[in-house]
Each structure stands twice: as structure tokens, then as C-alpha cells.
Design a protein around this nucleic acid. Structure first.
Length: 486
DNA sequence: TTTTGAGTTGTTCGA
DNA sequence: GTCGAACAACTCAAA
């Protein structure tokens, strides 16, 4: 029996990144199956060129997620070593120092992440240490889903059809309940050393009202949402920012606090038990597959964060007006649904998906600001900022990505607001200066009669901005710019 | 190889 | 107010 082996035997190193969980964790399971004590390592990489430094919002999440993970790990007899620096040096050096015979980790798929992992693997092999990476983040590896001719999918629907037809997603692995650490531990940082939490000002102070980082919080949210009334009308309510129509699991999924494989099977089981409508469950699973689709694109299209998938877009003429970008970031565009979304992002670290599309379309097509500016802002402010999802979605809304919207599809921020926030509740919550406006005018305050504005305490241009651009004019200009690169 | 069918998330115009 | 057509033609995937 492996656990009877003497503790002096070579330990195993488990290098954790975006897999901070004990349920269905293939890398953790494999490390445990080595039958030796396991040392867990997390490396904060702030120096590798090309590696995107963690955004501000995600630093807050990581602090809490690691705190909770560490506590859960210690309950299981385990130990977490925190180190800061370049993993290509730290991982092999630490593995050698503790005399590890093997190192396990969960794969990541953006080009620079793959490069880092390759370098770590080579350095370990050069030292005679076994290195194994695992799929713990996706339903399928990016190379497992191919077209009939062996190519990669650039259109979502056939990709989704193939996954539906396969029905070979692996069952979840059992939860790890014990993960004994070696008796002596190497030097390590403390979380406090890393200064991940914002101070002066503490702009994240309200985050904890909305979020519970960590595996426990992820599971609680998933279970509660699955039972909720709004979830069971997912197909229609997922588009309503004023309702609890979406699962809000994205930050948990990003940090690997919950497994996408578990979500898939849980949903299937809920449908089979008649606890969840089959059609809505299918739409939810197709959203999980959108995440897969973005990850396989990132893997097969290195440089996607910078380069439009459709080459002709390289010549697009942007305005990149700094004042417009700033107004968008601050939620002061004069379009209530846009401003509500941008303020939700700032206040809660998250934005509803429908509203992400509206603000994205507005930035790119109404303000003619380069989608990469939007990508950067989201990277810094979103708790769920993910290289694959964030990049693929910005390219999609800009019209230059895979399966992108046709150029003439330009969202009208007013009608989108009326359609998806029909009573204006979402706007009232995040744009309080408009909260007294009747719903007829809540999405277009500039059309309200003076008396109505006065009664609602709104002074356009003072308490709330006039629209910074006229949508009808901006739309025509965007179409002309697209015409120029055709 | 060539052909055929189809493509997340929309808006506007005019009958 | 509602509805269908036009937007403009391109790329992808499969037969």
C-alpha cells in the first residue's frame, strides 16, 4: 500500500495554477497516486516577458482563493509553498532541492503559457525528474476536436455538433481527502508578502458582498443556482442582466475552483432527474462549449491577443479618442445600459454577458476605439479575466474574429437596453442618478420632457451626461470604415 | 475538386 | 404596432 512507504522517499511536487480545487483534479490525483508525500507549489509570475501580469481585480480573487485553498489543504495534512518569480527557474530548482522524483501540473493553453510549460518540462527532464501535465481545465484538449480533414474549427456550430455527438466526456475523479506533505518544508513566501489586496484606495471593499472565492464558494453558488427559478429558464433569462439568469461561475471556472467536467455531468444528471428543463440544460452546456471553443482558438492561433483573426482588419482606421475611452471606462457615455455595465464591472468585478456585448459593440463601433483597448481594460477589471475567453469575445464583437458577427450588426444601445432590461431595474441599480426616471425614458433620458427630468432630479449634462455620440451617426460612420477595408 | 449549405447573441426600413 | 426583407457577400465545413 503506497501510504505505508517511509516518508523519506522522494516526494512529489504538485505545481498549482488555475486548478485550486480538490474535486475532479487530474493533476492532484496523479500526484497522490505516486504514493509519496506531495508538496504543493504556487508561483506568482510577475516577470516573465509575454506573460500577462495578473489584473488588479484578479489579484484580489487570488489572495482569497489561495487563503481558502491553503486552509483546506492543511486540513488534509498538506502544505503549500508560495514563491514569486519565473517558474522556469523556480519549479525545476525547487523540485531538485526537495529531491522530487516527479512534478505534476494542469495544462494551460495560450501560446505564452504553453512556451513556459515546455521550458519547465525540459529543465525538469534535464535534471532527471519526471514531468507530467494533465487536462484539468477543459472538457477536451484543443487537439482532440478536429474537422473531418484534421483541421481546427473556426465556426462554432459544427464544433458544438461534434461535441454533442461524441458523448465521451470523462467522468469526474473522486475528491482528494488526504494529501500528506513531506516532513520538512523549504522556505516560502507568505500571502501578505505578495500584497495582492488593494489599499489606498481599497476599491475592492464591496467585492466580498458578491463573491466567495474558493472551491467551497464555487460549489455553493453552483448548487444554489441550479435549484433557482431563473436558472430553469436559462435559454431566455441568461440574456437578462436584471435577473439571476446566469450562473456567475466564470471567476470560479477561471481559477479552477470548480471543474467544467463536473458542471457538464451535474447538468446532465439534473436533466435526467427532471430537476432541470432539457432545453435550458442544453443551452447551458453549449455556453460551456463556447469556453472550450475560445480555448482551442487561443491554442491554435498564437498571437490572437494582438492580431485580428481576419487579416484585413489590420488596416482598420480607429479614432482611439482618449476622452471617449475614458468616458466608456468610467460609465459616463450618456447611454444608460452602457454606463450601468461599466459601473457594474468597476463595482463588482464582473459584468453580465449580454451587457459585455453591448459595451463592446459601443466601444468598437460607436466610439471607433480599438478592441484591444477594451481587452486591456477588461483584463485589469474583470475577476474572470481569461486570456482565451476575453480575447476571443473581443475579436468576435469587433467583427474580426472566428465566426464573427457580420459587419452590419451594430448594437443599438437604447433598444438593447429596452429589450433586455425592460423595466430599467439594472440601470437603476448601477446608475442611481437616473433611478427616479420612469421606465419609458430610463434607457434614453435625453428624450424625456423637461418636466419629467426635473421631477426625477436629472439635469442632463450635469447630474448625468448627454450621449457622447449620436448612435445613428456613429453607426453610419462605422459602416463606412468597414466598407474601406472590405 | 467542386459544390452546396450554413453561419450565437442585430437593426432598420417600408409595407 | 407588427412583420418580412435587406443589409453584402465571405468563409468555413462537409458531402
Amino acid at each position: 500500500m503506497p501510504y505505508l512507504l517511509p516518508m523519506t522517499d522522494a516526494p512529489t511536487l504538485l505545481w498549482l495554477r488555475q486548478d485550486l480545487r480538490f474535486d475532479d483534479n487530474p493533476a492532484m490525483r496523479a500526484a497522490l497516486d505516486e504514493g509519496q508525500p506531495v508538496l504543493c507549489l504556487y508561483v506568482l509570475d510577475e516577470e516573465t516577458p509575454g506573460e500577462w501580469a495578473l489584473g488588479g481585480a484578479q489579484r484580489w480573487w487570488l489572495h482569497h482563493s489561495l487563503t481558502n485553498f491553503q486552509a483546506d489543504l492543511e486540513k488534509r495534512g498538506g502544505a503549500l509553498i508560495l514563491r514569486r518569480g519565473d517558474p522556469r527557474q523556480i519549479v525545476p530548482a525547487l523540485a531538485q532541492k526537495i529531491g522530487a522524483s516527479s512534478v505534476h501540473w494542469t495544462r494551460r493553453y495560450a501560446a505564452w503559457q504553453v512556451d513556459t510549460d515546455k521550458a519547465v518540462k525540459e529543465a525538469l527532464k534535464a535534471r532527471g525528474i519526471n514531468a507530467e501535465s494533465h487536462n484539468g481545465g477543459l472538457l477536451y484538449e484543443p487537439w482532440e476536436i478536429a474537422t473531418k480533414t484534421g483541421g481546427t474549427y473556426r465556426v462554432y456550430t459544427p464544433y458544438w455538433k461534434q461535441i454533442q455527438a461524441r458523448e465521451d466526456i470523462r467522468p469526474p475523479l473522486p475528491r482528494v481527502n488526504k494529501l500528506p506533505a513531506p516532513s520538512s518544508l523549504p522556505d516560502r513566501d507568505t500571502l501578505e508578502d505578495w500584497n495582492l489586496l488593494p489599499t489606498r484606495p481599497n476599491w475592492a471593499k464591496s467585492f466580498s458582498e458578491d463573491w466567495a472565492p474558493g472551491e467551497k464558494g464555487a460549489k455553493a453558488r453552483w448548487r444554489a443556482w441550479l435549484k433557482s427559478k431563473d436558472a430553469k429558464a436559462y435559454d431566455s433569462l441568461r440574456n437578462r442582466p436584471d435577473r439571476e439568469g446566469t450562473s456567475r461561475l466564470s471567476p470560479h471556472l477561471h481559477f479552477g475552483e470548480i471543474s467544467v467536467v463536473s458542471l457538464w455531468h451535474d447538468m446532465q444528471a439534473a436533466v435526467a432527474a427532471h430537476d432541470f428543463p432539457a432545453d435550458d440544460g442544453k443551452v447551458f452546456r453549449s455556453e460551456l462549449v463556447w469556453r472550450e471553443f475560445s480555448h482551442q482558438l487561443t491554442f491554435h492561433q498564437p498571437g490572437m491577443e494582438e492580431t485580428p483573426l481576419m487579416e484585413k482588419f489590420s488596416g482598420f482606421r480607429w479614432d482611439n479618442d482618449k476622452a471617449h475611452l475614458r468616458a466608456w471606462q468610467q460609465g459616463l457615455t450618456g447611454y444608460p445600459i452602457v454606463d450601468a455595465g461599466m459601473r457594474q464591472l468597476w463595482q463588482t468585478g464582473w459584468m453580465h454577458n449580454r451587457v459585455r456585448m453591448i459595451v463592446g459593440s459601443f466601444l468598437v463601433k460607436d466610439l471607433l476605439v480599438d478592441w484591444r483597448e477594451g481587452l486591456k481594460w477588461f483584463w485589469d477589471t474583470l475577476l474572470d479575466a481569461d486570456p482565451a475567453n476575453n480575447t476571443a469575445s473581443w475579436q468576435w464583437i469587433a467583427g474580426c474574429g472566428a465566426d464573427a458577427a457580420p459587419f452590419f450588426r451594430i448594437f443599438n444601445p437604447t433598444t438593447q437596453g429596452q429589450k433586455f432590461d425592460p423595466d430599467g431595474d439594472y440601470v437603476r441599480r448601477f446608475v442611481p442618478e437616473l433611478s427616479a426616471l420612469p421606465k419609458k425614458y430610463i434607457h434614453a433620458p435625453e428624450t424625456a420632457p423637461p418636466l419629467i427630468l426635473k421631477e426625477a432630479g436629472v439635469k442632463l449634462g450635469e447630474t448625468y451626461p448627454l450621449p457622447i455620440v449620436d448612435h445613428a451617426i456613429a453607426r453610419k460612420e462605422a459602416l463606412a470604415r468597414y466598407e474601406a477595408i472590405k
